[in-house]
Design a protein around this nucleic acid. Structure first.
Length: 482
RNA sequence: GACCCCUUCGUCUAGCCUGGCCUAGGACACCAGCCUUUCACGCUGGCGACACGGGUUCAAAUCCCGUAGGGGUCACCA
């Protein structure tokens, strides 16, 4: 097989949908796997809906995911002349014709068909217009669109690398419009023309495009060109098994960055939607994906997007990150949450202490926010208080801890550990019965890194301040819940 | 409604093409236990699926037919 040429051709009418990102990824992977060329083409023939912002957000999404393109970006809006030339060619050789029916007339016919419960197809009113009629309509200045002439009762075979052969009956198609009144192309036309012109060998796209395929094949043939090979990817669905939409939460690729996911984890997750390697491997570096991916192991059935599995995967990747990188990411997300970790060294210690609790970046806030809050400002989690302050005894522990903390020197993990254990024993308490109430007292939470480390990082003075405040605040909460 | 696609644990999937190795494997999630100052990690175990009905065959998740369910598309959008 000669080197494949594939393309990703999004329309810039919004941010890059996560399903489209998967399509882009599979194209990219296919090109990389086979030493082919990955082309980026912006299908912006719909001037009304296309925006600059969308285009740049698509670029940014792809860059974030690491999907680099070898050619392009091409914009269809720059290639108008090509489409117009091809369209004229088709009109001339009789493969297509101009249609003068107005939008309103057509809408009425469509509506009538709908009411009668029969499928609407263009009735061919303008298909056999005589030259004189055409001239008359032109001289009246009637707007016209171009339609493809489709012969009925022909089967159109669309071989698909994933689905196998799919056959459409041309009678279910109608003479569809491919050039608008302003003589600019519609999607199916520009797409087929470009795929041919750019020598695209494989069109890998979502299954929602399957109904377009026979139309594009017809256009290719009308132009005397060999259609590319097709591969229709199963859709990515929401938890209820329907097309993923904004209502389902995050669907924009960049939103996942905002939520604190790692691009390599997202790539890994997306790759495993409908694709699997031989063996039972779940975690693939991008390099492995580039070496192993192929279309013959892509499934046919739709898959549901599972945020929990993505989160798990992300955690796996997170744990592999060097501390310096983790610290950088943590700083970024801490900032987003309104915290300002001023001391870089201290932040690194905190990130290290939080350790593998980091599944996504915002987890740094969940597990370590109190490190960045004033001694008198962190909040007490009511659930934590309820669970660990069951009687007067725990309040007493917090009060008594002040003098213990005061006396620990040096105030470091090993020493704190030694003294804490001895203290618990002295008081006839299990270690956990003193540590957890203290944790809640100084952090406000019942989860987090090792308390000993937490105390050391906080420092003696801060711990003392916090214990003092807890002694005042906790009884109030304690009283409230009775 | 018409056309097209799909159907293995709750979810992602392996197995299907080239029937027997499938008392259907792995992963996420969930549950339990272990480890542990909590949480998280890790480890161990558990729960849990061939949509249904007919064939074909000595033998079917795998092949054939039908039914049901789900999804996608039906624009002078892409």
């Amino acid at each position: 097989m000669s080197a494949p040429r594939v393309r990703f051709a999004p329309s810039p009418t919004g941010s890059l949908h996560i399903g489209s990102a998967r399509t882009a990824l599979f194209n990219w992977l296919y090109a990389r796997r086979h030493g082919g060329t990955f082309i980026l083409r912006i299908d912006d023939t719909d001037a009304e809906r296309s925006t600059e912002e969308s285009t740049s957000s698509i670029f940014e999404s792809m860059k974030w995911l690491g999907l680099d393109w070898d050619e392009g970006p091409y914009a269809q809006s720059d290639r108008l002349e090509l489409y117009q030339e091809r369209a004229r060619q088709m009109i001339e050789n009789g493969a297509a014709y101009f249609c003068y029916c107005s939008k309103e007339e057509l809408a009425a016919k469509r509506e009538a068909a709908r009411k009668e419960g029969r499928p609407y197809r263009y009735d061919g009113t303008c298909r056999n217009l005589s030259d004189s009629e055409r001239k008359r309509l032109d001289s009246e200045g009637r707007p016209k669109v171009a339609r493809l002439k489709i012969e009925p009762d022909e089967s159109i075979l669309t071989p698909d690398l994933i689905l196998g052969d799919v056959v459409f009956d041309s009678s279910t198609l109608d003479d569809f419009i491919f050039m608008k009144p302003d003589f600019t192309p519609l999607y199916n036309f520009s797409s087929a023309v470009d795929d041919a012109d750019m020598n695209i060998t494989h069109v890998i796209r979502g299954q929602d495009h399957l109904p377009n395929t026979p139309k594009q094949i017809l256009i290719s043939k009308a132009l005397g060109m060999e259609p590319p090979k097709f591969a229709h990817l199963p859709m990515v669905h929401n938890a209820r098994g329907q097309k993923l939409s904004k209502r389902d939460g995050a669907v924009g690729t960049l939103e996942f960055r905002e939520m604190g996911f790692l691009p390599e984890a997202l790539v890994n997750y997306l790759a495993r939607l409908a694709w699997s390697a031989e063996g039972e491997q779940e975690i693939f570096t991008t390099e492995e994906l580039k070496a192993k991916f192929d279309l013959d192991r892509v499934g046919k059935s739709p898959s549901r997007f599972d945020l929990k599995k993505l989160t798990w995967l992300n955690g796996q990747y997170m744990n592999e990150k060097p501390l310096s990188e983790k610290t950088e990411g943590a700083a970024l997300f801490l900032n987003k949450a309104g915290y300002e970790p001023e001391n870089a060294e201290r932040l690194e210690r905190i990130v290290e202490a939080v350790g593998d609790r980091l599944h996504t970046w915002p987890d740094i806030v969940t597990y370590g926010s109190y490190f960045f809050e004033e001694d008198g400002a962190y909040e007490f989690d009511p659930a934590a208080v309820k669970k660990w302050f069951r009687s007067e005894a725990e309040l007493e522990t917090v009060r008594a801890a002040e003098s213990l903390i005061e006396s620990i020197d040096p105030f470091e993990v090993d020493e704190i550990d030694k003294r804490m254990r001895a203290w618990a024993e002295e008081r006839g308490e299990k270690l956990i019965r003193v540590l957890q109430p203290l944790r809640v007292a100084v952090t406000g939470k019942q989860v987090g890194p090792s308390l000993l480390e937490t105390l050391e990082i906080l420092g003696k003075e801060s711990v003392l301040n916090r214990l003092e405040r807890a002694s005042e605040e906790l009884p109030k909460m304690y009283a409230q819940k009775g």
